[in-house]
Amino acid sequence: MITMEHVCKSYKIAKRNAGFGEAVKALFHRDYEIIHALNDVSFTIRDGEMVGYIGPNGAGKSSTIKILSGILTPDCGTVLVDGRIPYKNRIKHVKEIGVVFGQRSQLWWDVPVIDSFELLKDIYSIPDPRYQQSLEELTELLNLAELLRSPARQLSLGQRMRCEIAASLLHRPRILFLDEPTIGLDAVSKLAVRDFILNQNKTHGTTVILTTHDMQDIEALASRIILIGKGRILMDGTLDDIKKGGGNIDETVAELYRAYDIQ
């Protein structure tokens, strides 16, 4: 179970107007702006739920994921994931979670994918039999057999994403965070990734939290949707709640953004 209560997180950034004179001025005096990435955010996610976390760019999606995965420390509020405080018991916490950053790779570029997996086995201290079992299962479900022997740099984006997802699941995490997992993938790979995530949730009861801009991902995967904008939770409901008006989901979401003025 994941609970976030009254969580806030803000950043200080320097700002400067364009122009040469302004640049010289900034040398001596600098204005700062406080950005409230998260402003009193609260929600609860039960075990085995699949939650789509949506909102425009800069709404606070990444900050939430990073707090839940122990990367960031919130300014205030309480966070509990299966009874652990992520940023306090980092090492214990991250053993139980898997994270996929869609835009970054965790595979070693120049060696066969399987070598990266072997290293992960050591990093997560996965016992031999369990590693073999996980590997076999993931290889079959994600169709990796052909890919494991090639270096990551030779794989297509779709092939690599399948390997990335497998890499994040080798240690059988109970919670999986997916940060834009289908970005830039072709249709076939997208479908394969979605099918696989659904399957993991069904067979292992993995809790899945997914951020994406692809509304088809949300339709296919999320039974519950949390909408965030300007650091606040604006809506927390099911897909049907959002689709009340019916019609195309992209348009509905765009309308929502406009209605809440968070574009």
Binding site: R16, F20, A23, V24, A26, L27
Partner: peptide, 16 residues
């Protein structure tokens, strides 16, 4: 050149 120079000024801590 102006762009480069402005960039250099931007990172004042780096310059110092």
């Amino acid at each position: 050149f102006r762009l480069r120079f402005a960039m250099g000024l931007q990172y004042r801590a780096a310059a110092f």
